[in-house]
Design a protein around this nucleic acid. Structure first.
Lengths: 97, 97, 97, 97
DNA sequence: GCAGATGTTTTGCCGC
DNA sequence: GCGGCAAAACATCTGC
């Protein structure tokens, strides 16, 4: 396909991208890659904090559990515990909870 | 492969494997691959049981929790809960547990 | 817990499980636990094969790489066959495969 | 910190956390939670860019493939550079890089 | 609305 | 014992 000229559709088709669309795509991809870098940096920071805490003698696995608990909505938490207890009772192992 | 002749070491070296060693290696690899197939089959069975239970209205996530509880040594379980409670109290969110 | 009487829902609810549901749950959980034992047994066998090979002087890490390669090749073949089948179905000659 | 008396360990134990340790734990957890918020914000931004591109007619799945390819290429380049650096250090001319 | 796919997080394992 | 690595669980998203 060659130049699309005026009046051609602005929507990218499946054959080839006009120059504007190509530039737009590249721009988007690069933005996403920058954001991905940011995300990795934040994750590295998190990891560092975990490593510090571990170095001070804290148990990382337990900290993860606490974070999950704090994140979760309290109502949902209660609901989940209720189901767990129901099942445990039905199995006769409610002493595990 | 240059013939190694009598007196050559029976232990595989890093250059080339004699025919016997090569056959032995292939045999071991194929045995492992068969065992891996078995493992996948068992996992498929497990998945099916989970799917059945889900289809009958049970909550799969809760069932997984129960399985973990039943598997874990009771002493270890208590230890973990103790640590979790210790941390939660230190954070002032012991109501989450 | 006994029967819940006529009109009670057959679907497990969040309060309490009737006897049938409890038994069903227990049965499912025990089936899963048996399958898990099978899986562990298979993994133990695999481990044993690895140990044997290691004892014969092979490098386990390299063997793992080989296994990964063979698996990837097989996956690629299967994918190609899947594509072939897709085309065959699209052409209405899937009986040729 | 409430004094625990002479001989008490400075390392957090499993019974109770002293005030300093508790504060340290809380501080760490809150830092992690802030970082997690950052991470979610970045992911929301990424999602928005994807949504924009999709709104302009691009195929998101294809874009993801492109991103994966570019990432792989970059990883390969980095690996090559790492090898180069290894050799350079081995040759004692790492200052040339 | 959910089955299926993908990606992320967590867990368990192996070698050091 | 721990740090990296593979497997599994989990959450998320998409297409039917």
């Amino acid at each position: 396909m060659t130049a699309r000229g005026p009046g051609s559709e602005p929507i990218p088709n499946h054959d080839v991208l006009n120059q504007a669309a190509g530039g737009r795509l590249l721009s988007g991809i690069e933005r996403i890659e920058r954001l991905e870098e940011d995300r990795l940096a934040v994750m590295a920071d998190k990891k560092e904090v975990f490593a510090e805490l571990k170095g001070e003698g804290f148990d990382v696995k337990t900290i993860r559990k606490l974070l999950a608990l704090r994140k979760k909505d309290k109502a949902k938490l209660q609901e989940e515990n209720a189901i767990l207890q129901t099942y445990a009772i039905a199995l006769g192992c409610e002493d595990l909870i």
